[in-house]
Write a protein that binds this DNA or RNA. Structure first.
Length: 251
DNA sequence: GCGACAG
DNA sequence: ATCTTGTCGC
């Protein structure tokens, strides 16, 4: 077992929709202790998965998938890559919105677990509490590994941005922002802020930072901004995707 | 590397 | 078209 993940509860990835829904409901209702960003430098892992080339969502159940996890040290200059790991195998299902865990959960979990050291926090290319059952893959993967997690995506899943006048008060402090990188608007589900739209680089399209396992949307926004280097996509996700594609190319 | 688009 | 990814033009 990965050092630091020894306290992870046993976790078996559901193999069908019904058991996935049950697991999502259980995790959505759990209240694990909130996690806070450390003061000094800390370790962030990013993970992502690619499948066979083709149209969007290519690769069905049984088709190959390539997962990669990268370990970065942040908080002391630009993100520095410390380690990486991979996992290759069969996808559990075709892509379908809301049940991404069925497709990618086991392989992503394996890649993260194969890292030589546990990160302090995990960044997943998927939604978290912004989900029909309030437990997207970013949240599930955090629970599965026993690590605090956030999600980073291009678009929200089911959360919406209220009109400015209807915005709820921020439940916690937001990261500092400026002209080049800023929090744009809260994304709300059932009155709760589950994500923020965040502009990571001036003039570029924003990304969505999702609350996940033991994390708030405010922390997710701060971590997304804090791990962005010279590209729109935060480094943990950008590098994990890059590594997964290289892995596929060598296959 | 990014946005648009397909899906 | 709503968590993913791909290709294309720039």
């Amino acid at each position: 077992m990965l050092p630091g993940m020894a306290n992870a509860p046993p976790f078996t990835w559901p193999g069908d929709r019904a058991s996935l829904a049950a697991a999502q409901d259980t995790l959505a209702c759990a209240s694990p202790p909130p996690w806070s960003l450390p003061d000094g430098p800390f370790l962030v892992a990013g993970c992502a998965l690619v499948s066979t080339r083709g149209a969007a969502g290519a690769g069905g159940s049984g088709d190959p998938g390539w997962a990669a996890a990268v370990l970065l040290e942040v908080g002391a200059g630009p993100p520095r890559e410390v380690a990486a790991a991979d996992a290759t195998g069969a996808l559990g299902a075709a892509f379908e919105t809301g049940v991404l865990a069925l497709r990618e959960g086991p392989l992503l979990h394996a890649a993260v677990a194969a890292l030589p050291r546990a990160p302090d926090v995990l960044v997943v290319h998927a939604a978290g509490r912004d989900h029909p059952r309030r437990a997207g893959l970013a949240l599930m993967l955090g629970a599965a590994t026993g690590l605090p997690s956030i999600g980073v995506t291009t678009r929200p899943l089911v959360a919406r941005a209220p009109d400015v006048a209807d915005r709820p008060p921020h439940p916690g402090p937001l990261p500092r922002w400026g002209n080049d990188a800023c929090v744009l608007e809260p994304l709300v589900l059932d009155g709760a802020i589950v994500a923020y739209r965040v502009r990571t680089r001036a003039g570029l399209r924003p990304v969505v930072a999702h609350a996940g396992w033991r994390t708030t949307a405010e922390l997710a926004a701060a971590l997304a901004l804090g791990t962005t280097a010279n590209a729109r996509t935060p480094e943990p996700i950008r590098r994990a995707l890059e590594r997964a594609r290289r892995l596929r190319a060598r296959a």
